[in-house]
Design a protein around this nucleic acid. Sequence first.
DNA 1: CCAGGTGTCAACAAATATGATGACACATTT
DNA 2: AAATGTGTCATCATATTTGTTGACACCTGG
Lengths: 66, 66
Amino acid sequence: MSRKLGKRIVLLREKKGWSQAELARVCLKDRQSIERLERGTTNPTAYTLYEVASALEITLAELLKF
Amino acid sequence: MSRKLGKRIVLLREKKGWSQAELARVCLKDRQSIERLERGTTNPTAYTLYEVASALEITLAELLKF
DNA sequence: CCAGGTGTCAACAAATATGATGACACATTT
DNA sequence: AAATGTGTCATCATATTTGTTGACACCTGG
């Protein structure tokens, strides 16, 4: 499940033409935190998802469409 | 944010006519865990949200529409 | 009245996410 | 060749979620 979510984040990030580092910067997060998220090795919290969605300029619901 | 999410869970749970205890049972969770979620005192993980959504027979995206 | 359901709250141990730092291989650019 | 950007991985300390137990007040049905 985290795997699917990770793939979705990768997709949305690349759609914006961003690198992990760029998304991390906009999220005010660590580059490695984003990488873990995308690889699906963690089970992120709702707030983390909210921060990522905000950075990607989409809603939480849209981020979770997978 | 957790507050809004909690209110949404309450709404969807009551739409099914369930008590917190009933939702907890379907989720295989503790009654108190559901209660904390609904009150917004925790920042749940994606997997927890997935379990709740499954119990409510909706998608994650639908649960997060708020 | 009283037993049971309900929502709420507190505290604890265990598991886990997060932020941080450092490292590595690979590709691209200068 | 050297420097930089990229994605990946590991480790550590700290914060937080989660499961659990116990408790309380309130209400309703028997």
